[in-house]
Each structure stands twice: as C-alpha cells, then as structure tokens.
C-alpha cells in the first residue's frame, strides 16, 4: 500500500468569488480525512458545484489555502493541479458523464490515460486496466448482462451513472467527488445507485464527497454539512 495521507483535504481561511460577481464561498477551517463520507447539502445556485471545483483543484481560492493531499493547490501550477486531480480524484457529474464516442470499457479506463499512478494501481490489483474496468463494471451491474465493448449511447441514465461511478473508482483514487449524481434518477434507481456507490467506496477505502439538494439521502452519510457553512453571505 502507498503511504496514507490522513488529511486529504484541508481548508484554511478560504475565500472565493467568480470573476465580476460578489464573493461566493468563505470558509475558515475545514478538514476531510481518509475514509470519511461527507454529504454537502444546499439549494440550487448556492455554490455546491463551485466548492467541488475548488476541491478538485480546477479552481483556486482567491485567498487562503486549500490543500489536496497535503499540497496547496493555490501555489501549484495548473498542470500540477491537473495531475493531482488525475491521480487522486474520481469525479461523477449529475449527468452526461460519458464520452459518447468511447465504449463502456474505454470510458471507464479513461482516467488511467491521464494518471500513471491510477493505471499502475489498477494493473497491480487486477492485472490490467481493462481487467480492472471490467471487474468494476461487473460489480456495478450485478443484475444485468453487460457488454463492455458496447457503445454508451444506448445506456439508460441510471446505467450511465453507474458507468461514471466505475470510472470514478478505477485505479482507487483517494477521493471520489459526486456532484448530484442521483438527481436525474428515479427513486428506485437512486437507491440502488447510492447502495452500489457506498459498497465500492468502502471497498477501496475512498473518501466520498457527495453533493445534493435531496435531504433524504443525508442519513446514509457519517458526516453532513450545509453549504451555508461555506457561503460568504450567510456567515456572520
């Protein structure tokens, strides 16, 4: 096992606002440890996705510090932040996660093309990146027969989200970030997706950051925060 950094995400005195807009996010201190399952709740437009962009190192704070894997993203070059994201973060969007011109397995192994670390991990654990992808797909599609070389265009939204989850998990990144991954799913599909996601995240000891405005999901998580705690205008 590679060395385990316990504090995966660390925030200090962070301030962020989109260019030309009022300050949006503000946070004095926040810590996320390995294996934690964090639920961030908040209404639409409150800045949840913006926060995730900061956590993923796509955006950098206007002031203060945000450390990812003990590295201050603000002081890293863009390319180094991209590499940090590729190596340590799996990302799931609300929908339209998949690259339409790649088949299922190709979509899942995609992160391994941008991160040697994840490619090596997947290969070490399963004998190859494609084998790792197939295994993950098998686990996430327990009920249905699935051809890994099929095009993704014929999948249902729920199936697409599961492929996206497999992709976020391939090569065992330390952090899995999910931006409302269930909001396009119906009730049953949502429950099944959450269940599968938790299973896989636990299996790989990943930290999960899950954003939603659906309060019914909060119960599954061991830690829940309100986006208001991160918002510039609602904080005293």
């Amino acid at each position: 096992m590679p060395e385990v950094t316990e504090e995966l995400i660390e925030i200090e005195d962070l301030r962020f606002g989109w260019p030309g807009a009022a300050p949006l996010l503000s946070c004095d201190r926040f810590l996320l440890r390995r294996g934690e399952h964090l639920y961030i709740r908040g209404p639409s437009g409150s800045g949840k996705s913006t926060l995730l962009n900061l956590l993923a190192g796509v955006l950098t704070p206007d002031s203060g510090r945000l450390s990812l894997m003990r590295q201050d993203t603000g002081s890293l070059a863009a390319a180094a932040r991209d590499r940090l994201r590729a190596d340590h973060i799996g990302f799931i969007f609300q929908q339209f996660n998949l690259v339409p011109y790649l088949n299922l397995a190709e979509n899942v192994v995609l992160p391994c093309h941008f991160s040697r670390r994840r490619a090596t991990r997947a290969a070490e654990a399963h004998g190859g990146v494609t084998a790792a992808a197939r295994l993950l797909l098998q686990r996430l599609f327990v009920e249905e027969e699935l051809d890994p070389t099929a095009p993704v265009s014929r999948l249902s939204v729920g199936q697409q989200q599961r492929v996206a989850a497999a992709r976020a998990l391939v090569g065992d990144p330390e952090i899995v970030i999910a931006d409302e991954p269930t909001s396009a799913l119906d009730f049953d599909a949502r429950a099944r997706f959450i269940e599968l996601l938790f299973e896989q995240v636990q299996a790989s000891r990943a930290t999960l950051v899950f954003v939603s405005h659906d309060p019914t999901l909060a119960a599954c998580f061991d830690r829940t925060v309100d986006i208001d705690d991160f918002r510039a205008e609602t904080r005293p």
Binding site: R83, R85, A86, L110, F114
Partner: peptide, 15 residues
C-alpha cells in the same frame, strides 16, 4: 460537456 468530462478525469489544458 465532452471537454468538462475529459477535464474531470484528469485531462489537463495541454491534453
């Protein structure tokens, strides 16, 4: 969308 997905899986600006 495609570009955002690629970015999210680790593609840099360079890629």
């Amino acid at each position: 969308r495609e570009m955002a997905v690629l970015r999210s899986v680790g593609a840099g600006y360079r890629h």
